[in-house]
Deep mutational scan, measured.
Amino acid sequence: GPREVTMKKGDILTLLNSTNKDWWKVEVNDRQGFVPAAYVKKLDSGTGKELVLALYDYQ
Rank of each mutant, 00 (worst) to 15 (best):
P36K: 03
L43C: 08
A54I: 05
K9Q: 08
T47F: 12
G48S: 09
A38F: 07
K21I: 08
G33Q: 06
D57Y: 05
W23N: 01
E4V: 14
D30T: 06
G1R: 13
K9G: 04
D22G: 07
R31V: 15
G48T: 09
E27Y: 06
D22H: 14
Y39D: 03
G10K: 00
K41M: 14
I12A: 02
L16D: 00
I12R: 04
L15Q: 00
K9Y: 04
N29L: 07
V52M: 04
K9T: 06
V52T: 01
P36Y: 04
K21R: 11
A37Q: 04
T6A: 13
W24D: 00
T19C: 11
E4I: 14
L16P: 00
N17P: 03
Q59N: 14
K8F: 08
G33A: 12
N17T: 06
V35G: 01
L51G: 02
L53M: 14
V28C: 10
T47D: 15
A38D: 09
A54C: 10
G10M: 02
P36E: 02
D44S: 11
G10A: 03
R31N: 09
T14A: 08
R31T: 14
K41V: 15
Y39R: 04
K41R: 10
V26M: 00
P36C: 06
T19V: 09
Q32E: 12
Q32K: 11
N20S: 07
D44F: 11
E50A: 12
A54T: 03
E4F: 15
R3I: 13
F34C: 11
Y56R: 15
Q59T: 15
Q59V: 14
K9M: 07
R3F: 15
L43K: 03
Y39Q: 04
K42R: 11
K41C: 14
V40S: 00
M7K: 00
G10W: 04
W23Y: 07
L51T: 09
K41H: 09
V52R: 00
Y39E: 02
A38I: 10
V52G: 09
Q32L: 07
I12W: 04
K25P: 01
N20D: 13
V40G: 01
K42E: 06
L43P: 01
D44N: 13
K9A: 12
K9L: 05
Q32F: 09
K25H: 11
V52D: 00
L55M: 08
P36H: 04
Y39L: 11
F34L: 07
L13F: 07
K41Q: 15
S18C: 10
V5W: 15
Y56P: 00
G46C: 11
G10S: 02
L16R: 03
A37S: 14
T14Q: 08
V26H: 00
L55F: 03
G46F: 10
A37E: 03
V40F: 07
T6N: 12
V28N: 13
F34D: 03
N29I: 05
T6S: 14
Y56N: 09
K21W: 05
L51F: 11
K42M: 09
K25Y: 15
E27W: 08
S45G: 12
Q59C: 10
L53K: 06
W23P: 00
D44T: 15
V35L: 03
L51I: 09
R31D: 06
I12C: 04
T6K: 10
P36S: 03
M7P: 01
N20A: 06
F34Q: 03
W24P: 00
N29Q: 08
K8C: 09
T19F: 09
F34S: 03
L51P: 00
T47K: 10
L13Y: 07
D57H: 05
A54R: 00
Y58C: 00
M7E: 01
T14V: 15
D30Q: 08
K49L: 12
D11E: 08
D30E: 10
L53R: 07
T19A: 12
W23M: 04
P2D: 12
R3L: 14
L13W: 02
A37Y: 03
G1Y: 12
V40Y: 01
K21G: 08
T14C: 08
S45Q: 10
D11C: 05
L53S: 05
I12M: 05
T6H: 12
E50Y: 09
I12S: 02
Q59G: 12
Y56K: 14
Y58G: 01
V35R: 00
G46V: 13
M7R: 00
K21H: 10
W23E: 02
G1Q: 13
V40R: 01
K8D: 03
N17L: 07
L53G: 02
T47H: 13
N29G: 15
L53H: 04
D57Q: 04
A38T: 11
D57A: 06
D44P: 14
L55W: 02
D57C: 05
V52K: 00
E4K: 13
G33H: 08
A54D: 00
N20E: 06
M7D: 02
G10N: 05
Y56Q: 14
K9D: 02
Y56E: 12
T14S: 07
E27P: 00
W23L: 04
T14K: 11
K25N: 06
K42A: 06
P2A: 11
